[in-house]
């Protein structure tokens, strides 16, 4: 791994000018004469960098500025403030050498041609990216195996299920072997099996080709499985950038203790907040600093069969982050 980051973002900002209008006919007529606009800051002063081969989860609620940032990184949007460098290029210049080495997959958009077989759309990309036939066949073989595409290639896109289409979209976006992958909700709307499949594929692709991946997803399972590091933005601002474990450490002041007892229905509310109590098993939430203390007391005072201390689910932690 080289020390030069693949992605460097410094003080990045994007402000949209949005026309503002009151509802109603009167306001509509008024807007013909004087148009008032309002500035909306979608992204505010964000800085981070991503090393080659790294997979970073880019998290935030809807409207946080994730897609705007990904669009700026892939050259579709022009930033209003700050600097971006992706593999040595300024994205919005859309230099051919830049476009040849990146890809952007948006889970809600598609690039494949609707009416023709998948393989023909792929062939189109082969020609656009000027991939030699030898190289193309090798890549297609690999992608077909990893994503199990062989039965899909001869079908027109319109005959594919959402999950099948997404697999083909991802393959189409990777035919030119990009170094940097921007993935915006690549698993959105897919069932659990398909999500897992795509997740596994992305992990494998990253390992094989040391590709750099910046991924947004609302499914924490994606993030936990793929990303050691996460960047969280909220209202356009960067809230956290670091290891997933550090995130939990920092934003979750609680731990969860699950105790299995020999006897039933012990009232443990004096030890901590009881979340569930089913049969012999009780789940407690305790302040992180008191974890050792509470654990000790439980073991000393009660007939404990089993006891585990866990971090709260990542969803809960993220919720905690956004509520601050």
């Amino acid at each position: 791994m080289s020390n030069i980051p693949d992605i460097t973002v410094q003080n990045l900002g994007k402000t949209y000018e949005v026309p503002q209008r009151e509802p109603g006919l009167g306001a509509a007529i008024k807007s013909l004469v004087s148009r008032t606009t309002r500035d909306v800051e979608a992204v505010k002063n964000i800085s981070f960098s991503v090393a080659p081969g790294e997979i970073v989860g880019f998290l935030g609620p809807n409207g946080a500025g994730k897609t705007t940032t990904l669009k700026m990184l892939s050259g579709l949007l022009h930033p209003t403030a700050g600097e971006i460098s992706v593999i040595g290029h300024t994205p919005y210049a859309r230099h051919k050498n830049f476009l040849n080495r990146i890809t952007l997959v948006m889970g809600q958009r598609n690039q494949l041609m609707w009416d023709i077989p998948v393989a023909d759309s792929f062939e189109r990309n082969r020609a656009i990216y000027r991939i030699s036939h030898g190289e193309y066949n090798k890549t297609l073989d690999e992608l077909s195996t990893l994503l199990d595409l062989s039965d899909l290639l001869s079908k027109p896109v319109r005959n594919l299920s959402l999950g099948e289409r997404m697999k083909c979209e991802i393959a189409a976006a990777l035919l030119h072997r990009p170094q940097v992958l921007f993935l915006d909700e690549p698993t959105i709307g897919l069932d659990v099996t398909m999500q897992r499949r795509i997740r596994a594929f992305l992990g494998e692709y990253n390992r094989r080709h040391s590709a750099t991946v910046l991924l947004t997803s609302h499914y924490m399972a994606d993030v936990e499985a793929l990303c050691k590091r996460v960047i969280i933005i909220h209202h356009g601002e960067l809230l956290f950038d670091g290891d997933l474990s550090a995130l939990i450490e920092r934003f979750s002041p609680h731990k969860t203790i699950v105790v299995d007892l020999e006897t039933e229905r012990a009232d443990l509310s004096s030890y901590g907040e009881v979340i569930t109590a089913e049969g012999n098993s009780v789940t407690l939430r305790v302040p992180k600093t008191k974890t050792a203390d509470v654990t000790g007391k439980l073991l000393a005072n009660l007939p404990v069969i089993d006891l585990t201390v866990e971090d709260p689910p990542i969803e809960e932690v993220i919720e905690q982050v956004f509520s601050n």
């Binding site: 009416d115 023909d120 759309s121 062939e123």
Partner: peptide
């Protein structure tokens, strides 16, 4: 030469697509 190859690919896929709308 590159452009010829790209045009050929565009041409073929467009032909295929339009053939759907006879």
């Amino acid at each position: 030469k590159h452009y010829t190859a790209t045009y050929w690919a565009f041409f073929k896929t467009s032909l295929l697509e339009q053939f759907q709308y006879r």
